[in-house]
Amino acid sequence: MTGARLLTRALADPASVAALDADDWTTLLTMARAEQLIGSLAHRLDGIAMRDAAAAILGDARLSMDHARRQALWEAEMARRALADVDVPVVLLKGTAYVAAGLSAGIGRSIGDLDILVPRDALGVVEEALIERGGWEWVKEDDYDDAYYRDHMHELPPLIHKERDRMIDVHHTILPLTAKPTPDAAALLADSEPLESGLRVLSAPDMICHAACHLFADGDLAGGLRNLWDIDRLLRDFGDAPGFWDRLGECADRHQLSRAVARALRLAERLYGTPVDGDVAGRGRAGDALYIRRLLARDGWGRETRKGLRGAFYIRSHWLRMPPVMLGRHLWTKWRKN
């Protein structure tokens, strides 16, 4: 079995673990940790007969992710309180949104930073409220990075909480401003749906669009198997709703993300057997196989493999984020600083 297939198979088909021997289990658990999927795997394999040592490790992972979930929801609540007097919609993104909305993608998911989306013209007041009332502060004072974020990125420079040591990323859209596709941020906000707390989450199709952005545009597809697992779980939650696939096609089109969404669907189908709509996923393309190879580039010791392919995807991810001349200038500046 090549690369992380063992992991994607266990996630997609839990019964398949019955055939694993001790060394296979060691490989599976090591890969799951390295791909930040150990908590998802633990919940997925809940109730399946397995060796005691494996059950104990997965039990630990479940506890760990339960704690991560509680912390993530608490961070969201802290942000809500800090922003209560600011009259703007606050949309939770990614992991925190999944757990807050009770979606399957949130079960056992590791969650790091708190990501929120707010209207671009409200960035100033949101930033001020988080710092003045919430207790967050700038992570680092670096003029180049700060200016770069403010001029070209889809989010503010990261803020960290003084006491809780947790980061918040304040987004105003879901792709860097320098990227070729320009998602319709106003539509993302307008179509978002309220939770009981007053915080909001993206509409179902927009969640898929954002997850696809996250998969392809952030770094060199690092964490790709986890991001793709999110997409699988979301589609299984949403896929049966009447009209969902049509709306997904429309939203992807409106955000200029049709190709990214189509490819994400095809990759999810290939790796996790996700049921997808053929019209939205489109026909397989030659590049898909390279993506699959890159996503599975992990060995049984948890190490990254296929360095060349990873490097190519790293450059490609930057290529998607900014035009060539700007990319050259950016990499030159970063290289000189380091």
Partner: peptide, 12 residues
């Protein structure tokens, strides 16, 4: 020696 170790360490 464990059959399925809890942790992996790499010296590389």
């Amino acid at each position: 020696a464990p059959g399925i170790p809890d942790f992996t360490v790499r010296l590389a």
